[in-house]
Write a protein that binds this DNA or RNA. Structure first.
Length: 462
RNA sequence: GGUCGGAUGGCCGAGAGGCGAGGCUCAGGACUGCAAAUCCUGCUACACGGGUUCAAAUCCCGUUCCGACCUCCA
Protein backbone atom coordinates (compact mmCIF):
# COMPACT_ATOMS: atom_id res chain seq x y z
CA UNK A 1 0.00 0.00 0.00
CA UNK A 2 1.43 3.35 -0.99
CA UNK A 3 1.32 6.17 1.51
CA UNK A 4 0.51 5.99 5.17
CA UNK A 5 -3.06 6.51 6.34
CA UNK A 6 -3.80 9.88 7.85
CA UNK A 7 -6.91 10.64 9.85
CA UNK A 8 -8.48 13.73 11.33
CA UNK A 9 -8.65 13.62 15.10
CA UNK A 10 -11.32 15.78 16.69
CA UNK A 11 -9.29 15.88 19.89
CA UNK A 12 -6.30 17.56 18.23
CA UNK A 13 -8.27 19.18 15.40
CA UNK A 14 -5.64 18.08 12.95
CA UNK A 15 -5.02 15.41 10.35
CA UNK A 16 -2.17 13.18 11.42
CA UNK A 17 -0.62 9.86 10.62
CA UNK A 18 -2.51 6.89 11.99
CA UNK A 19 -0.36 4.87 14.32
CA UNK A 20 -2.13 1.90 15.91
CA UNK A 21 -1.50 1.11 19.56
CA UNK A 22 -0.52 -2.40 18.53
CA UNK A 23 1.12 -2.89 15.15
CA UNK A 24 -1.23 -4.43 12.63
CA UNK A 25 -4.30 -4.17 14.84
CA UNK A 26 -7.05 -1.59 15.15
CA UNK A 27 -9.76 -1.35 17.77
CA UNK A 28 -12.74 0.83 16.87
CA UNK A 29 -15.72 1.72 18.99
CA UNK A 30 -18.61 3.36 17.17
CA UNK A 31 -21.58 4.81 18.97
CA UNK A 32 -24.47 3.01 17.35
CA UNK A 33 -28.15 3.59 17.68
CA UNK A 34 -30.27 4.44 20.63
CA UNK A 35 -33.11 2.25 19.48
CA UNK A 36 -36.05 4.52 20.10
CA UNK A 37 -37.18 5.34 16.53
CA UNK A 38 -36.77 4.00 13.00
CA UNK A 39 -33.47 4.77 11.26
CA UNK A 40 -33.33 7.78 8.97
CA UNK A 41 -30.65 8.36 6.41
CA UNK A 42 -28.60 10.46 8.82
CA UNK A 43 -28.23 7.49 11.13
CA UNK A 44 -27.13 5.20 8.36
CA UNK A 45 -24.74 7.78 6.94
CA UNK A 46 -22.75 7.33 10.12
CA UNK A 47 -22.88 3.58 9.64
CA UNK A 48 -21.75 3.89 6.03
CA UNK A 49 -18.92 6.35 6.76
CA UNK A 50 -17.43 4.17 9.44
CA UNK A 51 -17.99 1.05 7.38
CA UNK A 52 -15.84 2.61 4.67
CA UNK A 53 -13.17 3.34 7.28
CA UNK A 54 -13.33 -0.24 8.46
CA UNK A 55 -13.13 -1.68 4.96
CA UNK A 56 -10.19 0.55 4.13
CA UNK A 57 -8.33 -0.47 7.28
CA UNK A 58 -9.01 -4.11 6.50
CA UNK A 59 -7.82 -3.65 2.93
CA UNK A 60 -4.72 -1.98 4.38
CA UNK A 61 -4.05 -5.28 6.16
CA UNK A 62 -5.06 -4.27 9.64
CA UNK A 63 -6.79 -6.76 11.87
CA UNK A 64 -9.84 -4.70 12.81
CA UNK A 65 -12.02 -5.20 15.85
CA UNK A 66 -15.11 -3.15 15.27
CA UNK A 67 -17.54 -2.63 18.13
CA UNK A 68 -20.81 -0.84 17.52
CA UNK A 69 -23.14 -0.70 20.46
CA UNK A 70 -26.89 -0.67 20.79
CA UNK A 71 -28.24 1.52 23.55
CA UNK A 72 -31.42 -0.28 24.39
CA UNK A 73 -32.44 1.52 27.57
CA UNK A 74 -32.97 5.25 27.88
CA UNK A 75 -35.60 7.90 28.62
CA UNK A 76 -36.95 8.06 25.10
CA UNK A 77 -37.39 4.32 24.87
CA UNK A 78 -39.36 4.39 28.11
CA UNK A 79 -41.43 7.28 26.79
CA UNK A 80 -42.18 5.47 23.61
CA UNK A 81 -43.14 2.33 25.49
CA UNK A 82 -45.62 4.28 27.58
CA UNK A 83 -46.93 6.04 24.51
CA UNK A 84 -47.35 2.92 22.39
CA UNK A 85 -48.47 0.88 25.36
CA UNK A 86 -45.98 -1.91 24.76
CA UNK A 87 -43.07 -3.04 26.97
CA UNK A 88 -39.87 -1.02 26.75
CA UNK A 89 -37.92 -4.08 25.64
CA UNK A 90 -40.33 -4.60 22.78
CA UNK A 91 -39.71 -1.01 21.65
CA UNK A 92 -35.96 -1.52 21.82
CA UNK A 93 -36.07 -4.79 19.93
CA UNK A 94 -38.40 -3.44 17.26
CA UNK A 95 -36.12 -0.56 16.39
CA UNK A 96 -32.95 -2.55 16.77
CA UNK A 97 -34.31 -4.84 14.07
CA UNK A 98 -35.17 -1.84 11.91
CA UNK A 99 -31.59 -0.60 12.21
CA UNK A 100 -30.18 -4.03 11.47
CA UNK A 101 -32.35 -4.25 8.39
CA UNK A 102 -31.28 -0.78 7.22
CA UNK A 103 -27.60 -1.59 7.73
CA UNK A 104 -28.04 -4.83 5.80
CA UNK A 105 -29.82 -3.10 2.94
CA UNK A 106 -26.89 -0.67 2.67
CA UNK A 107 -24.28 -3.40 2.93
CA UNK A 108 -22.87 -2.08 6.20
CA UNK A 109 -20.84 -5.00 7.53
CA UNK A 110 -22.01 -6.42 10.84
CA UNK A 111 -19.65 -5.30 13.60
CA UNK A 112 -17.26 -7.74 15.17
CA UNK A 113 -19.51 -7.50 18.17
CA UNK A 114 -22.66 -5.51 18.83
CA UNK A 115 -23.09 -5.17 22.59
CA UNK A 116 -26.31 -3.98 24.19
CA UNK A 117 -26.34 -1.66 27.16
CA UNK A 118 -28.68 -3.88 29.16
CA UNK A 119 -26.28 -6.76 28.80
CA UNK A 120 -23.52 -4.86 30.58
CA UNK A 121 -25.08 -3.72 33.84
CA UNK A 122 -22.44 -5.64 35.78
CA UNK A 123 -19.62 -3.81 34.03
CA UNK A 124 -21.36 -0.49 34.68
CA UNK A 125 -21.73 -1.21 38.37
CA UNK A 126 -18.08 -2.18 38.58
CA UNK A 127 -17.10 1.06 36.86
CA UNK A 128 -19.24 3.10 39.27
CA UNK A 129 -17.73 1.34 42.25
CA UNK A 130 -14.31 2.20 40.96
CA UNK A 131 -15.27 5.83 40.38
CA UNK A 132 -16.90 6.23 43.79
CA UNK A 133 -13.98 4.51 45.44
CA UNK A 134 -11.45 6.92 43.96
CA UNK A 135 -13.59 9.96 44.66
CA UNK A 136 -14.58 10.77 41.08
CA UNK A 137 -18.23 9.98 41.56
CA UNK A 138 -20.70 10.05 44.40
CA UNK A 139 -23.97 8.44 45.41
CA UNK A 140 -25.91 11.02 47.39
CA UNK A 141 -28.36 8.51 48.77
CA UNK A 142 -31.35 9.05 46.49
CA UNK A 143 -30.41 6.12 44.29
CA UNK A 144 -28.71 8.27 41.66
CA UNK A 145 -24.98 8.18 41.05
CA UNK A 146 -23.28 11.30 39.69
CA UNK A 147 -19.91 12.02 38.20
CA UNK A 148 -18.12 14.93 39.84
CA UNK A 149 -17.10 16.93 36.78
CA UNK A 150 -14.80 19.23 38.73
CA UNK A 151 -12.74 16.28 39.80
CA UNK A 152 -11.27 15.71 36.35
CA UNK A 153 -9.15 18.62 35.15
CA UNK A 154 -9.20 17.55 31.51
CA UNK A 155 -12.99 17.66 31.30
CA UNK A 156 -14.31 19.29 28.09
CA UNK A 157 -11.02 19.16 26.20
CA UNK A 158 -12.64 17.36 23.27
CA UNK A 159 -15.18 20.12 22.67
CA UNK A 160 -12.76 22.82 23.78
CA UNK A 161 -15.15 24.39 26.22
CA UNK A 162 -14.75 25.81 29.67
CA UNK A 163 -16.90 24.40 32.38
CA UNK A 164 -17.88 27.84 33.60
CA UNK A 165 -18.99 28.90 30.12
CA UNK A 166 -21.58 26.20 29.88
CA UNK A 167 -25.14 27.29 30.22
CA UNK A 168 -26.50 25.43 33.16
CA UNK A 169 -29.48 23.25 32.56
CA UNK A 170 -32.64 25.07 33.52
CA UNK A 171 -33.93 22.16 35.47
CA UNK A 172 -30.76 21.33 37.36
CA UNK A 173 -31.75 20.05 40.74
CA UNK A 174 -29.13 20.79 43.34
CA UNK A 175 -30.80 18.82 46.06
CA UNK A 176 -28.42 15.98 45.42
CA UNK A 177 -25.92 17.24 42.83
CA UNK A 178 -22.80 19.00 44.04
CA UNK A 179 -22.63 20.97 40.80
CA UNK A 180 -25.40 21.46 38.25
CA UNK A 181 -23.13 20.12 35.54
CA UNK A 182 -22.49 16.83 37.29
CA UNK A 183 -24.18 14.19 35.21
CA UNK A 184 -25.99 11.01 36.14
CA UNK A 185 -24.09 7.77 35.68
CA UNK A 186 -27.04 5.92 37.11
CA UNK A 187 -30.65 6.86 37.72
CA UNK A 188 -32.79 5.72 40.60
CA UNK A 189 -35.79 3.67 39.58
CA UNK A 190 -39.10 5.41 39.28
CA UNK A 191 -42.30 3.44 39.77
CA UNK A 192 -43.02 1.37 36.71
CA UNK A 193 -39.55 1.83 35.22
CA UNK A 194 -37.28 -1.12 34.59
CA UNK A 195 -34.52 -1.38 37.15
CA UNK A 196 -31.52 -3.38 38.19
CA UNK A 197 -30.23 -3.78 41.75
CA UNK A 198 -27.06 -1.92 42.74
CA UNK A 199 -25.29 -1.17 46.02
CA UNK A 200 -26.99 2.27 45.87
CA UNK A 201 -30.48 1.04 45.21
CA UNK A 202 -32.47 -0.14 42.24
CA UNK A 203 -32.13 1.91 39.08
CA UNK A 204 -31.10 2.04 35.48
CA UNK A 205 -28.13 3.36 33.49
CA UNK A 206 -27.68 6.99 32.57
CA UNK A 207 -26.96 7.70 28.94
CA UNK A 208 -23.17 7.77 28.81
CA UNK A 209 -22.07 5.03 31.14
CA UNK A 210 -22.76 2.13 28.81
CA UNK A 211 -20.24 3.22 26.20
CA UNK A 212 -17.38 3.50 28.68
CA UNK A 213 -18.24 0.13 30.17
CA UNK A 214 -18.62 -1.64 26.84
CA UNK A 215 -15.61 -0.07 25.13
CA UNK A 216 -13.56 -1.19 28.11
CA UNK A 217 -15.06 -4.68 28.06
CA UNK A 218 -14.24 -5.36 24.42
CA UNK A 219 -11.35 -3.07 23.54
CA UNK A 220 -9.55 -2.64 26.84
CA UNK A 221 -8.43 0.45 28.74
CA UNK A 222 -7.02 2.09 25.62
CA UNK A 223 -8.01 1.64 22.02
CA UNK A 224 -7.42 3.30 18.69
CA UNK A 225 -10.52 4.98 17.32
CA UNK A 226 -13.79 6.13 18.77
CA UNK A 227 -16.41 7.32 16.34
CA UNK A 228 -19.84 8.80 16.18
CA UNK A 229 -21.88 11.68 14.88
CA UNK A 230 -20.75 15.26 15.30
CA UNK A 231 -23.54 15.92 17.75
CA UNK A 232 -22.13 13.39 20.18
CA UNK A 233 -18.99 15.39 20.90
CA UNK A 234 -20.77 17.12 23.71
CA UNK A 235 -22.05 15.86 26.01
CA UNK A 236 -21.86 12.18 25.17
CA UNK A 237 -18.23 11.80 24.25
CA UNK A 238 -17.01 14.31 26.79
CA UNK A 239 -18.79 12.36 29.44
CA UNK A 240 -17.45 9.07 28.21
CA UNK A 241 -13.97 10.55 28.45
CA UNK A 242 -14.68 11.90 31.91
CA UNK A 243 -15.90 8.53 33.21
CA UNK A 244 -13.18 6.51 31.57
CA UNK A 245 -10.27 8.74 32.40
CA UNK A 246 -11.49 9.16 35.96
CA UNK A 247 -11.26 5.39 36.12
CA UNK A 248 -7.63 5.66 35.06
CA UNK A 249 -8.15 4.37 31.56
CA UNK A 250 -6.47 5.91 28.55
CA UNK A 251 -9.61 5.41 26.48
CA UNK A 252 -9.73 6.47 22.82
CA UNK A 253 -6.61 7.55 20.99
CA UNK A 254 -8.37 9.16 18.02
CA UNK A 255 -11.83 10.68 17.89
CA UNK A 256 -13.62 10.70 14.58
CA UNK A 257 -16.95 12.37 13.93
CA UNK A 258 -19.12 12.22 10.87
CA UNK A 259 -21.18 15.22 9.78
CA UNK A 260 -24.91 15.18 9.29
CA UNK A 261 -27.27 14.80 6.48
CA UNK A 262 -28.97 18.15 6.26
CA UNK A 263 -32.23 19.21 4.71
CA UNK A 264 -32.56 22.84 3.65
CA UNK A 265 -29.32 23.53 5.45
CA UNK A 266 -30.62 22.23 8.74
CA UNK A 267 -29.75 19.13 10.61
CA UNK A 268 -32.24 16.41 9.94
CA UNK A 269 -34.59 15.79 12.74
CA UNK A 270 -37.52 13.60 13.40
CA UNK A 271 -39.84 16.52 12.78
CA UNK A 272 -39.28 15.97 9.08
CA UNK A 273 -41.56 13.00 9.31
CA UNK A 274 -41.22 9.65 7.70
CA UNK A 275 -40.02 10.60 4.26
CA UNK A 276 -36.33 10.32 5.00
CA UNK A 277 -36.50 7.03 6.81
CA UNK A 278 -34.44 4.36 5.15
CA UNK A 279 -37.28 2.06 4.01
CA UNK A 280 -39.02 5.04 2.39
CA UNK A 281 -35.93 6.06 0.43
CA UNK A 282 -35.43 2.46 -0.63
CA UNK A 283 -38.73 2.61 -2.46
CA UNK A 284 -37.08 5.08 -4.82
CA UNK A 285 -33.52 3.83 -5.22
CA UNK A 286 -31.70 0.59 -4.57
CA UNK A 287 -29.70 0.13 -1.39
CA UNK A 288 -26.45 0.20 -3.31
CA UNK A 289 -27.44 3.54 -4.84
CA UNK A 290 -28.42 5.07 -1.52
CA UNK A 291 -25.12 3.92 -0.11
CA UNK A 292 -23.26 5.44 -3.05
CA UNK A 293 -25.01 8.71 -2.38
CA UNK A 294 -24.42 8.72 1.37
CA UNK A 295 -20.79 7.79 0.95
CA UNK A 296 -20.04 10.21 -1.86
CA UNK A 297 -19.47 13.35 0.22
CA UNK A 298 -16.51 13.55 2.56
CA UNK A 299 -17.49 12.16 5.95
CA UNK A 300 -16.72 15.46 7.70
CA UNK A 301 -18.84 17.53 5.32
CA UNK A 302 -22.53 18.10 5.69
CA UNK A 303 -24.46 16.29 3.01
CA UNK A 304 -27.34 18.41 1.79
CA UNK A 305 -30.10 15.97 0.99
CA UNK A 306 -32.36 16.29 -2.00
CA UNK A 307 -34.19 13.73 -4.06
CA UNK A 308 -32.63 15.33 -7.10
CA UNK A 309 -29.10 14.81 -5.81
CA UNK A 310 -29.99 11.28 -4.77
CA UNK A 311 -31.19 10.55 -8.28
CA UNK A 312 -28.03 12.07 -9.77
CA UNK A 313 -25.91 9.84 -7.60
CA UNK A 314 -27.94 6.83 -8.69
CA UNK A 315 -27.45 7.79 -12.34
CA UNK A 316 -23.74 8.15 -11.82
CA UNK A 317 -23.57 4.79 -10.10
CA UNK A 318 -25.53 3.09 -12.86
CA UNK A 319 -22.93 4.25 -15.39
CA UNK A 320 -20.16 2.67 -13.37
CA UNK A 321 -22.16 -0.46 -12.84
CA UNK A 322 -22.94 -0.54 -16.57
CA UNK A 323 -19.27 -0.44 -17.42
CA UNK A 324 -18.51 -3.28 -15.05
CA UNK A 325 -21.28 -5.40 -16.53
CA UNK A 326 -20.19 -4.72 -20.11
CA UNK A 327 -16.59 -5.46 -19.18
CA UNK A 328 -17.60 -8.71 -17.51
CA UNK A 329 -19.58 -9.77 -20.60
CA UNK A 330 -16.60 -9.15 -22.83
CA UNK A 331 -14.05 -10.70 -20.49
CA UNK A 332 -16.36 -13.63 -19.78
CA UNK A 333 -15.18 -13.65 -16.17
CA UNK A 334 -15.86 -11.42 -13.23
CA UNK A 335 -12.64 -9.48 -12.65
CA UNK A 336 -11.09 -9.62 -9.21
CA UNK A 337 -10.81 -6.31 -7.41
CA UNK A 338 -7.45 -4.60 -7.14
CA UNK A 339 -6.55 -1.31 -5.49
CA UNK A 340 -5.53 1.52 -7.81
CA UNK A 341 -2.71 3.64 -6.49
CA UNK A 342 -4.50 6.94 -6.94
CA UNK A 343 -7.52 5.58 -5.15
CA UNK A 344 -5.33 4.44 -2.28
CA UNK A 345 -3.69 7.84 -2.04
CA UNK A 346 -7.06 9.52 -1.78
CA UNK A 347 -8.34 7.12 0.84
CA UNK A 348 -5.16 7.49 2.87
CA UNK A 349 -5.77 11.23 3.02
CA UNK A 350 -8.40 11.12 5.76
CA UNK A 351 -10.71 9.02 3.58
CA UNK A 352 -10.99 11.56 0.76
CA UNK A 353 -13.80 9.74 -0.98
CA UNK A 354 -14.67 12.64 -3.35
CA UNK A 355 -11.12 12.59 -4.68
CA UNK A 356 -11.34 8.82 -4.94
CA UNK A 357 -14.50 9.19 -6.99
CA UNK A 358 -12.64 11.41 -9.44
CA UNK A 359 -10.07 8.63 -9.77
CA UNK A 360 -12.83 6.12 -10.46
CA UNK A 361 -14.28 8.43 -13.14
CA UNK A 362 -10.92 8.55 -14.87
CA UNK A 363 -10.40 4.79 -14.71
CA UNK A 364 -13.84 4.32 -16.16
CA UNK A 365 -13.17 6.63 -19.08
CA UNK A 366 -10.04 4.61 -19.86
CA UNK A 367 -12.00 1.41 -19.48
CA UNK A 368 -14.73 2.51 -21.85
CA UNK A 369 -12.14 3.53 -24.41
CA UNK A 370 -10.48 0.14 -24.01
CA UNK A 371 -13.84 -1.53 -24.57
CA UNK A 372 -14.36 0.47 -27.76
CA UNK A 373 -10.85 -0.40 -28.97
CA UNK A 374 -11.17 -4.07 -28.06
CA UNK A 375 -8.20 -3.73 -25.73
CA UNK A 376 -8.91 -6.65 -23.40
CA UNK A 377 -5.95 -5.97 -21.15
CA UNK A 378 -7.11 -2.40 -20.69
CA UNK A 379 -10.67 -3.52 -20.00
CA UNK A 380 -9.55 -6.02 -17.43
CA UNK A 381 -7.29 -3.55 -15.67
CA UNK A 382 -9.97 -0.89 -15.48
CA UNK A 383 -12.68 -3.31 -14.39
CA UNK A 384 -10.46 -4.75 -11.68
CA UNK A 385 -9.51 -1.36 -10.36
CA UNK A 386 -13.08 -0.14 -10.33
CA UNK A 387 -14.29 -3.28 -8.65
CA UNK A 388 -11.56 -2.95 -6.04
CA UNK A 389 -12.55 0.65 -5.37
CA UNK A 390 -16.25 -0.14 -5.20
CA UNK A 391 -15.60 -2.93 -2.73
CA UNK A 392 -13.97 -0.45 -0.35
CA UNK A 393 -16.93 1.87 -0.72
CA UNK A 394 -19.23 -1.08 -0.08
CA UNK A 395 -20.81 -0.70 -3.51
CA UNK A 396 -19.50 -3.71 -5.39
CA UNK A 397 -22.41 -4.75 -7.62
CA UNK A 398 -21.07 -8.30 -7.66
CA UNK A 399 -21.29 -8.48 -3.88
CA UNK A 400 -23.68 -11.34 -3.19
CA UNK A 401 -25.63 -9.16 -0.79
CA UNK A 402 -26.85 -7.13 -3.76
CA UNK A 403 -27.47 -9.98 -6.19
CA UNK A 404 -30.61 -11.39 -4.70
CA UNK A 405 -32.52 -12.95 -7.56
CA UNK A 406 -30.36 -15.50 -9.32
CA UNK A 407 -33.34 -17.79 -9.33
CA UNK A 408 -35.67 -19.66 -11.60
CA UNK A 409 -37.67 -16.53 -12.42
CA UNK A 410 -34.56 -14.84 -13.73
CA UNK A 411 -33.89 -17.73 -16.11
CA UNK A 412 -37.42 -17.66 -17.45
CA UNK A 413 -37.19 -13.90 -17.91
CA UNK A 414 -33.89 -14.18 -19.71
CA UNK A 415 -35.34 -16.80 -22.03
CA UNK A 416 -38.39 -14.70 -22.86
CA UNK A 417 -36.44 -11.53 -23.49
CA UNK A 418 -33.95 -13.44 -25.64
CA UNK A 419 -36.83 -14.79 -27.67
CA UNK A 420 -38.07 -11.28 -28.36
CA UNK A 421 -34.57 -10.12 -29.20
CA UNK A 422 -34.13 -12.93 -31.70
CA UNK A 423 -37.32 -11.83 -33.44
CA UNK A 424 -36.02 -8.30 -33.53
CA UNK A 425 -32.63 -9.40 -34.85
CA UNK A 426 -34.36 -11.30 -37.65
CA UNK A 427 -36.39 -8.22 -38.55
CA UNK A 428 -33.26 -6.12 -38.64
CA UNK A 429 -31.53 -8.59 -40.92
CA UNK A 430 -34.32 -8.22 -43.43
CA UNK A 431 -34.21 -4.43 -42.88
CA UNK A 432 -37.72 -4.40 -41.52
CA UNK A 433 -36.92 -1.64 -39.06
CA UNK A 434 -40.54 -0.90 -38.35
CA UNK A 435 -41.02 -4.41 -36.99
CA UNK A 436 -37.69 -4.29 -35.12
CA UNK A 437 -38.56 -1.00 -33.47
CA UNK A 438 -42.02 -2.22 -32.58
CA UNK A 439 -40.51 -5.12 -30.66
CA UNK A 440 -38.10 -2.80 -28.93
CA UNK A 441 -40.87 -0.37 -28.03
CA UNK A 442 -43.02 -3.12 -26.61
CA UNK A 443 -40.41 -4.59 -24.34
CA UNK A 444 -39.20 -1.10 -23.43
CA UNK A 445 -42.71 -0.37 -22.23
CA UNK A 446 -42.25 -3.28 -19.82
CA UNK A 447 -39.07 -1.70 -18.52
CA UNK A 448 -36.50 -3.66 -20.52
CA UNK A 449 -33.75 -1.47 -21.96
CA UNK A 450 -31.87 -2.60 -25.07
CA UNK A 451 -28.38 -1.73 -26.23
CA UNK A 452 -27.03 -2.86 -29.59
CA UNK A 453 -23.30 -3.48 -29.34
CA UNK A 454 -20.65 -4.94 -31.58
CA UNK A 455 -20.98 -8.18 -29.60
CA UNK A 456 -24.73 -8.34 -29.99
CA UNK A 457 -27.72 -6.95 -28.17
CA UNK A 458 -27.64 -6.53 -24.39
CA UNK A 459 -30.66 -6.00 -22.26
CA UNK A 460 -31.25 -4.87 -18.73
CA UNK A 461 -34.08 -3.81 -16.53
CA UNK A 462 -34.14 -0.16 -15.67
C1' G B 1 -22.88 34.50 26.39
C1' G B 2 -19.32 30.18 25.21
C1' U B 3 -17.61 26.51 21.52
C1' C B 4 -17.54 24.73 16.49
C1' G B 5 -18.71 24.53 11.32
C1' G B 6 -20.42 26.58 6.65
C1' A B 7 -21.31 30.09 1.99
C1' U B 8 -17.70 27.24 -4.64
C1' G B 9 -20.78 27.14 -11.74
C1' G B 10 -27.88 25.33 -13.70
C1' C B 11 -27.52 21.33 -9.53
C1' C B 12 -24.37 18.11 -6.31
C1' G B 13 -19.58 18.27 -4.53
C1' A B 14 -13.70 18.41 -3.86
C1' G B 15 -9.56 21.57 -3.13
C1' A B 16 -6.85 25.13 0.90
C1' G B 17 -1.21 30.24 -2.15
C1' G B 18 0.43 29.20 -8.79
C1' C B 19 -0.83 23.65 -13.30
C1' G B 20 -9.46 24.67 -15.18
C1' A B 21 -11.08 18.03 -9.30
C1' G B 22 -15.01 15.02 -10.44
C1' G B 23 -20.15 13.88 -11.09
C1' C B 24 -25.18 15.17 -12.80
C1' U B 25 -27.89 18.29 -16.15
C1' C B 26 -27.71 20.98 -20.76
C1' A B 27 -25.74 22.15 -25.93
C1' G B 28 -22.78 20.62 -30.20
C1' G B 29 -20.05 16.63 -32.58
C1' A B 30 -18.36 11.28 -33.59
C1' C B 31 -20.39 6.32 -33.89
C1' U B 32 -25.42 4.11 -35.20
C1' G B 33 -30.79 2.09 -39.99
C1' C B 34 -32.81 4.67 -35.64
C1' A B 35 -32.21 4.34 -30.51
C1' A B 36 -29.23 3.12 -26.35
C1' A B 37 -24.40 2.91 -24.61
C1' U B 38 -19.68 5.17 -25.25
C1' C B 39 -16.16 8.87 -26.61
C1' C B 40 -14.82 14.09 -27.90
C1' U B 41 -15.89 19.40 -27.37
C1' G B 42 -18.36 23.37 -24.91
C1' C B 43 -20.87 25.75 -20.20
C1' U B 44 -13.96 29.07 -16.69
C1' A B 45 -17.35 29.23 -10.36
C1' C B 46 -15.46 30.18 -5.22
C1' A B 47 -20.85 35.43 -0.09
C1' C B 48 -19.17 40.86 0.36
C1' G B 49 -15.30 44.86 1.40
C1' G B 50 -10.32 45.77 2.35
C1' G B 51 -5.18 43.90 2.95
C1' U B 52 -0.52 40.63 2.38
C1' U B 53 1.92 38.51 -2.07
C1' C B 54 5.12 38.31 -8.32
C1' A B 55 0.57 35.22 -7.59
C1' A B 56 -5.44 34.55 -3.19
C1' A B 57 -11.31 30.38 -3.87
C1' U B 58 -7.14 29.24 -0.48
C1' C B 59 -3.53 33.55 4.14
C1' C B 60 -4.84 38.20 7.32
C1' C B 61 -8.58 42.02 8.99
C1' G B 62 -13.57 43.40 8.80
C1' U B 63 -18.80 42.58 7.19
C1' U B 64 -23.25 39.86 5.88
C1' C B 65 -25.91 35.48 5.86
C1' C B 66 -26.74 30.18 7.27
C1' G B 67 -26.20 26.17 10.57
C1' A B 68 -24.76 23.04 14.95
C1' C B 69 -23.76 22.06 20.22
C1' C B 70 -24.09 24.08 25.36
C1' U B 71 -26.18 17.52 29.93
C1' C B 72 -30.03 11.82 27.37
C1' C B 73 -29.32 13.64 18.90
C1' A B 74 -25.86 9.89 13.93
Amino acid sequence: MSAQLKLYNTATRAVSEFIPLQPGKVGIYLCGATVQAPPHIGHVRSGVNFDILRRWLTASRYDVTFIRNVTDIDDKILHKAAHENIPWWAVAQKYERAFTEAYRALNVLPPTYEPRATGHITQMIELMQLLIHNGSAYAPGNGDVYLDVRHLKSYLTLSNQKLDDLQSAEDADLTYKKDPRDFALWKAAKPGDPSWPTPWGAGRPGWHLECSAMAHAYLGESFDIHGGGLDLIFPHHENEIAQSQSAGWGFANIWMHNAWVTASGEKMSKSLGNSLQVPEILKQVRGIELRWYLGSAHYRSMLEFSFNALQEAATNFCRIEGFLKRATDVLEVTPDGVIHEGFAEAMNEDLAVPTALAVIAEIMRNGNNALAAGDMVGVKTAASEIRGALAILGCDPFDTIFSNDENADAKVLDGLVSLALEQRAAARVRKDFAAADAIRDQIAALGVVIEDTAQGTRWSIG
